[in-house]
Design a protein around this nucleic acid. Structure first.
Length: 851
RNA sequence: GCCCGGGUGGCGAAAUUGGCAGACGCACGGGACUUAAAAUCCCGAGACCGGCAACGGUCGUGUGGGUUCAAUUCCCACCCCGGGCACCA
């Protein structure tokens, strides 16, 4: 039996000081270069690839990073302890504009600035105790990596997936570069929320992501372990519409064109078309009005109106406007003459840039028709309506959804068909007669990757005076980004002002050529980095197929929901392209995706401008890494937003101190009596503690396997520790055997390992253990020992609790009912009333219904 | 306008299958230890009403209705907050 210590309260030495403990273990772990290194694919273990989104090396981690990585690290450590072969890599999304801005401000070369940031953020990560395998570290701004961006680009160029076109692009004056559509938010730059994006015409390189639109959409159905929210956002972004194209012949076929092709999802309403509407930029327009300067001016006005609306950041519908061209087209279904208009609400970028206007059944067409006095003709009637309204009436359009049962009228041979049948029959009819066919249109556009910036991957293309566009030869890769460059305030591509870079020889003919001086969008870098981790030092290829086949798909990808469309669509696209190139076998990068909530403070996202930024370094200095990480997991379930409250961190710190002090007082090290077998008979109090331990292990194990409610996992550990404190006095009286305390302590150290790895390691060594916690088996639990022996069952009378009875946990329904009915309070409550029924849920509750 | 989330004590939250609403923690109150404070340990606590008290009663998960012996949980309608998309034919 142990003697009670003289001082049961804490001595000075008992105090929990995380700094020395964490620094000691951090140093030890960093010295062990093999600690977090995964085994090769030949390993007999099952593989597990856990990945967190790589950060941009801005200079310092923020709390969002800490939360993201705390989740991933807990999972990685758990999977290790479960005996998996875990790949847990980290890298740096190291190209990008901030490096150039910093260069301008501090006169530091971008590379130097970036790599210094990498070093300090890596130190922060190591101080926080994240279990990354640095042997596979990827830094995207280094030639070892970006040469493969160039290599992929050349392969895509060969396959027709990379092409160049003159196009209207989104231009951010602040960044002085082009933005992808995905980077324009509410008409403003994604990096400069107050800067309106302008439209400019430039020669740009594009990747043909639209070739994969259908597959990107369909495969979302297989990604069952991705958040529904992300899948929905991607679906909306891809924006598939099923319909048909129909060709309308021009009444007077001119030199410009003979017909106008329109896209419609409602071919069933084609007899209701009373005009054609063209986008102002539609190529036919210029020909139609070429000899009418007045109309030309009006169309120009429409275009500049559109542009200024977009530049003003106006989203959504604006006042409808249009111009009649004076020309007519023939509706191929009824030979009717339709006036051809140019309208501001028709988008050149979508469908064919031309529509048939059906004012009776489309809100926008209706608004336009009313403004300009065009005919409104009803051709589809919902089943619920009996009488067709009169033609030309001024009411609101009869919007009928395709799913609604409705019938065609005023539609010639197609009268009486339901709209769904009509859609099929009319598309067929059009196809048979050669003036149309069913078609699918997507909202998704090709990915513009050219950036007029310095700090990015050079696009490996040359422009030869004789040969035109010539790709760089594969053996000449990488096209190195020159590093002795002066960054200036001037807009445009800095590389174009560097003759030694821009002036080159044509790889084909050896003649004078100009090198492409734009660089690639940095989202190219992050589209495939997770493949590189599997063999980061390979210098003959971007990846090794067998190794990738072993590790992929990623078992768990974790990151912020802000990447739901940008990064996560590009990554899926890149994966499919790589598969089609025969480089990999998988069609999707990640089997499971988890998007954690934002870290907010005082109800708002942390930002410098709001002055509510909490620095991780500060938290680590004050409370330690364990407390900081554990609070990030404890304060809210990981998928929800987390409001950072420093007092909460303090609370977690207090809890860890409570654990630490218990071990300091009561440690039952290995090779002492604490290690002996438990006595056969346990007191009720000892059973209670033992039961709590098994319940806690069971709960946490289940959560890691599914729900990931780490907040309640940590709460469960706290409950176990509270139970230990309650049991402590009973150690001295012998009611609780020290062998049991030893068992609980071992489990506790193991359970803490994913959440507070430093303290867990310290406690493990206090127990006289020398092995690395990561390699210890996760503690097992015995369901029989976790089971309660007796339970308190509330007894309700008409739904109000009147008594509580204690019965053995496995009591039958009959026994529970008997016990309930025998309770004096229950007898009093039902006295003199008619018993209607009694519902008994064994082990849960009894409800007696009386009248 | 359309599509996702969410709404529970003073605060962060819990309730895994329709079965005791508020676990765990913060803040708060009380006690122990201390010359004192900090730290620590123990106890209390949803709101309201009655009672010196043990205790008893009523209300309570955004609002209104419904199903059920029983609803934070299921159904219908609505309100508010956050996010995404938005003239996509």
């Amino acid at each position: 039996m142990t003697t009670p210590p003289q001082e049961t309260v804490n001595t000075h030495e008992d105090r929990y000081h995380p700094q020395p403990i964490e620094e000691k273990w951090s140093a030890a772990w960093q010295k062990d270069s093999q600690l977090y290194v995964a085994e090769p694919p030949s390993s007999a273990k099952k593989k597990y690839y856990v990945l967190e989104m790589l950060p941009y090396p801005s200079g310092a981690l923020h709390m969002g990073h800490v939360r993201n990585y705390a989740i991933g690290d807990a999972l990685a450590r758990y999977m290790w302890m479960r005996g998996y072969n875990v790949l847990h890599p980290m890298g740096w999304d190291a190209f990008g504009l901030p490096a150039e801005n910093a260069a301008l401000k501090n006169n530091t070369p971008p590379r130097e600035w970036t790599l210094a940031n990498v070093a300090s953020m890596k130190a922060q990560m190591n101080r926080l105790g994240f279990s990354y395998d640095w042997s596979t570290e990827v830094t995207t701004c280094l030639p070892d990596y970006y040469r493969w961006n160039q290599w992929f680009f050349l392969k895509m160029y060969e396959r027709g997936l990379a092409y160049r076109k003159n196009s209207k692009v989104n231009w951010c004056p602040e960044c002085a570069t082009v933005l992808a559509n995905e980077q324009v938010i509410d008409g403003c730059c994604w990096r400069h929320e107050d800067t309106k994006v302008e439209q400019r015409e430039l020669e740009q390189w594009f990747l043909r992501i639209t070739n994969y639109a259908g597959e990107l959409l369909n495969d979302l159905d297989q990604l069952e372990s991705w958040p529904e929210k992300v899948r929905t956002m991607q679906r909306n972004w891809i924006g598939r519409s099923e319909g048909a194209t129909v060709d309308f012949a021009l009444e007077h076929a001119g030199p410009v064109a003979e017909k106008i092709s329109v896209f419609t999802t409602r071919i069933d309403t084609i007899f209701g078309a009373t005009s054609l509407q063209l986008a102002p930029q539609h190529p036919v327009v210029a020909g139609l009005i070429a000899n009418n300067p007045e109309l030309l001016a009006k169309v120009d006005a429409l275009i500049s109106e559109q542009r200024s609306a977009k530049e003003a950041g106006e989203i959504g519908p604006v006042e409808k406007n249009g111009v009649f061209t004076g020309a007519y087209a023939i509706n191929p279904f009824n030979e009717e003459q339709l006036p051809i208009w140019v309208a501001n609400y028709v988008l050149m970028e979508y469908g064919t840039g031309a529509i048939m206007s059906v004012p009776a059944h489309d809100e926008r067409d209706h608004e336009f028709a009313r403004k300009f006095g065009l005919e409104v003709r009803v051709v589809v009637l919902p089943r619920r309506t009996s009488e067709p309204p009169e033609s030309g009436q001024e009411e609101a359009p009869m919007l009928t959804s395709t799913s609604e049962e409705s019938l065609l009228i005023n539609s010639g041979d197609f009268n009486g068909l339901s709209n769904l049948d009509a859609q099929k029959k009319m598309s067929q009819h059009a196809e048979e007669h050669g003036f149309g066919k069913s078609a699918v249109s997507y909202r998704l556009k090709d990915w513009g990757i050219s950036r007029q910036r310095y700090w990015g991957t050079p696009i490996p293309i040359l422009y030869c005076e004789k040969c035109g566009v010539v790709p760089e030869k594969e053996e000449n890769l990488p096209v190195l980004l020159p590093e002795d460059i002066e960054i200036t305030q001037q807009g445009g591509s800095p590389l174009s002002r560097l003759p030694e870079f821009a002036n080159a020889r044509c790889p084909k003919c050896g003649g004078t050529a100009r090198r492409e001086t734009d660089t690639m969008d940095t989202f190219v870098d992050s589209s495939w980095y997770f493949y590189r981790y599997t063999n980061a030092k390979l210098n003959t290829a971007p990846l090794d197929r067998d190794t990738v086949d072993y590790w992929f798909p990623i078992d768990q990808y974790i990151g912020g929901v802000e990447h739901a469309i940008l990064h996560l669509i590009y990554s899926r696209f890149w994966t499919k392209v790589m598969r089609d190139m025969g480089l990999i076998s998988n069609s999707e990068p990640a089997a499971r995706l988890f998007t954690q909530g934002m870290v907010i403070k005082n109800g708002a996202k942390m930002s410098k401008s709001k002055g509510n930024v909490v620095s991780p370094d500060d938290m680590v200095a004050r409370y330690g890494a364990d407390s900081t990480r554990m609070y990030a997991l404890f304060a809210a379930p990981p998928d929800r937003d987390l409001d950072w409250q420093e007092q909460g961190v303090e609370g977690v710190h207090r809890f860890l101190g409570r654990v630490y002090r218990f071990f300091m007082r009561q440690a039952q090290p290995k090779n002492t009596q604490g290690n002996a077998r438990l006595p056969g008979e346990l007191s009720a109090e000892a059973r209670k503690l033992q039961r709590k331990m098994h319940q806690t292990i069971a709960k946490i194990t289940r959560d890691f396997e599914g729900r990931w409610h780490f907040n309640t996992c940590i709460a469960a550990i706290m409950e176990l520790v509270n139970e230990l404190y309650a049991a402590e006095p009973l150690i001295y009286s012998g009611k609780i055997p020290v062998q049991l305390i030893a068992e609980v302590q071992r489990s506790l150290a193991l359970l803490l390992a994913p959440f507070a790895p430093y303290l867990a390691a310290e406690l493990w060594s206090v127990l006289g253990e020398t092995g690395v916690l990561l390699k210890q088996p996760w503690p097992p639990f015995d369901p029989a020992l976790a089971k309660e022996e007796s339970v308190e069952v509330p007894v309700q009378v008409n739904g109000k609790i009147k008594a509580r009875i204690i019965v053995p946990a496995d009591s039958s329904e009959g026994f529970t009912r008997e016990q309930a009915m025998a309770d004096t309070k229950v007898i009093a409550a039902i006295d003199g009333k008619e018993l209607l029924k009694a519902i008994v849920i064994p082990g849960r509750l009894v409800n007696i219904v009386v009248r």
